[in-house]
């Protein structure tokens, strides 16, 4: 009889894992690009509000807030990105370890029952895999927490965009232009919200 194969269930990493991280990274890149756009839009809005003068004082204050929001968002995304780039290393480690474990299991199976050192080698491999796996799980938890925090920030952005719309109505002769700007804000923030929802659903490790 052949020696039993080590049990690698519960370790759900497959070849798709790196592809998943790439997707997460792409989503983050998209949000970073959008945050940059908000930054520019906010700058524009600040100038527009200055031109409108007294008629758009409230709008000017909000534009400044939106600009600060865009900067906060960029910072959040930078730390998210750092997390995912770290996870590429961890996932690669797990994938490699799994490949090694699979080939070694095949070798031990071919060698039949009772090869000296087989049990120790299996135990060592399983322990290493479990350790890498738990590191990845920790990373996943941190990533999810960070996404949630960013979602809260974006909620605030949404409130700012809505307030900007209301302020735009009091913009006198600039009202139409200010309305256009605040509508653009709202759209971009909605887009970021959608991206964050996608991100929130991604998991680096399947349970």
């Amino acid at each position: 009889m052949n020696a039993p194969e080590p049990n690698f269930h519960g370790i759900a990493l497959r070849t798709g894992e790196l592809a998943r991280i790439v997707r997460v990274n792409e989503e983050i890149k998209a949000i970073v690009a959008t945050a940059f756009r908000i930054n520019l839009m906010a700058l524009n809005a600040i100038f527009l509000a200055k031109r409108a003068g007294n008629a758009a004082l409230g709008f000017g204050v909000l534009s400044n807030e939106l600009r600060r929001f865009a900067q906060d968002l960029t910072r959040h995304m930078a730390s998210l990105r750092e997390m995912t780039s770290g996870s590429v290393g961890s996932v690669t480690g797990v994938v490699q370890q799994q490949r090694i474990a699979r080939i070694l299991a095949e070798a031990l199976k071919l060698s039949g029952e009772g090869v000296p050192g087989a049990r120790e080698a299996r135990r060592r491999g399983a322990a290493r895999l479990a350790e890498q796996q738990s590191r990845l799980r920790g990373l996943d938890l941190r990533l999810r927490a960070a996404v949630e925090e960013t979602q809260q920030l974006v909620e605030l952005g949404g409130v700012l965009a809505r307030s900007a719309k209301i302020e735009a109505a009091y913009g006198g002769g600039f009202s139409a232009a200010l309305m256009q700007v605040s509508t653009d804000f709202a759209e971009v923030i909605a887009q970021i919200k959608r991206s964050l929802e996608v991100l929130g659903k991604e998991r680096l490790v399947k349970d």
Binding site: Q96, I100, A101, I103, L104, G117, A121, R124, G125
Partner: peptide, 8 residues
């Protein structure tokens, strides 16, 4: 890597 996996 495989030989080392068996005997580090």
């Amino acid at each position: 890597a495989l030989w080392l996996e068996f005997k580090p």
